[in-house]
Amino acid sequence: MTTTAVNSYKALTDDSAIALARTLDFFPEGAKLESQEIGDGNLNYVFRITDSESGKGLIIKQALPYAKVVGESWPLTLKRATIEANALRKHGEFVPGLVPVVYATDANLALTVMEDLSHLTIAREGLIRGEAYPNLSKDIGEYLAKTLFQTSDFALHPFEKKRLAAEFSNPELCKITEDLVFTDPFFDFETNDFEPELRAEVEAIWNNGPLKLEAAKLKKSFLTDAEALLHGDLHTGSIFASDTETKVIDSEFAFYGPIGFDVGLFLANLIAQAVTREGEKREVVLHHIEQTWNVFSSNFSELWEQQGIEAFKDTAGYKEFVLEKIFQDAIGFAGCELIRRTIGLAHVKDLDSIEELERRIALKKQVLQTGEALILKRKELPSIAAVVALVEEQSR
Results as ranks from 00 to 15, higher is better:
Gly237His: 00
Asp233Thr: 14
Asp40Pro: 03
Lys175Ala: 12
Arg80Met: 00
Thr224Ile: 12
Ala373Phe: 01
Asn192His: 06
Phe312Arg: 14
Ser137Trp: 04
Ile38Lys: 09
Cys174Val: 03
Val387Lys: 14
Gly237Phe: 00
Glu280Leu: 04
Ala19Pro: 07
Thr191Ser: 10
Val275Phe: 07
Pro96Ser: 06
Val181His: 01
Thr370Asn: 06
Val101Lys: 15
Leu127Gln: 00
Phe182Asn: 04
Thr13Val: 07
Asp25Glu: 05
Leu303Asn: 03
Thr82Lys: 15
Tyr318Pro: 00
Tyr103Gly: 11
Phe194Asp: 08
Gly126Trp: 10
Phe321Ile: 06
Glu167Arg: 03
Val46Leu: 14
Ile339Arg: 13
Leu198Thr: 02
Ser242Tyr: 12
Glu201Gly: 05
Ile271Gln: 13
Thr105Ser: 11
Thr244Lys: 14
Phe182Met: 05
Arg360Cys: 10
Asp233Leu: 13
Ser395Gly: 06
Leu20Ala: 09
Phe327Lys: 11
Ser298His: 03
Tyr66Glu: 05
Lys161Gln: 14
Glu160Trp: 07
Thr224Ser: 15
Ala123Asp: 04
Asp139Phe: 04
Ala85Cys: 06
Ala132Asp: 06
Lys219Cys: 08
Glu167His: 02
Val102Cys: 13
Glu358Phe: 08
Ala241Tyr: 09
Arg80Cys: 01
Ile354Gly: 13
Ser297Tyr: 06
Leu136Asp: 00
Leu180Ala: 10
Gln291Lys: 11
Leu357Gln: 13
Asn208Ala: 08
Glu115Gly: 12
Glu324Asp: 12
Asp14Tyr: 05
Arg129Gln: 14
Arg282His: 08
Lys377Met: 03
Ile289Ser: 06
Ile326Leu: 12
Leu43Thr: 11
Glu280Val: 00
Ser383Asp: 07
Lys90Leu: 14
Ser16Trp: 05
Arg89Thr: 13
Gly317Ile: 05
Gly30Ala: 05
Val99Pro: 05
Glu393Lys: 15
Ser8Pro: 09
Leu88Arg: 02
Ala110Phe: 13
Arg360Leu: 07
Leu43Gly: 04
Arg282Ser: 11
Ala362Asp: 09
Phe312Cys: 11
Phe187Glu: 06
Pro134Cys: 03
Glu172Gln: 01
Ile128Ala: 13
Phe255Asn: 11
Ser297Arg: 10
Ala5Thr: 09
Pro28Arg: 07
Thr105Asn: 07
Val99Thr: 04
Pro382Ile: 14
Glu324His: 06
Glu280Gly: 00
Ser73Thr: 11
Gly55Pro: 00
Glu142Gly: 03
Ala272Val: 08
Thr105Asp: 07
Ala346Tyr: 06
Ala21Tyr: 05
Tyr318His: 05
Ala107Gln: 13
Lys79Ser: 08
Pro75Asn: 02
Gly209Pro: 01
Thr147His: 07
Asp262Lys: 11
Gly130Asn: 08
Leu164Glu: 12
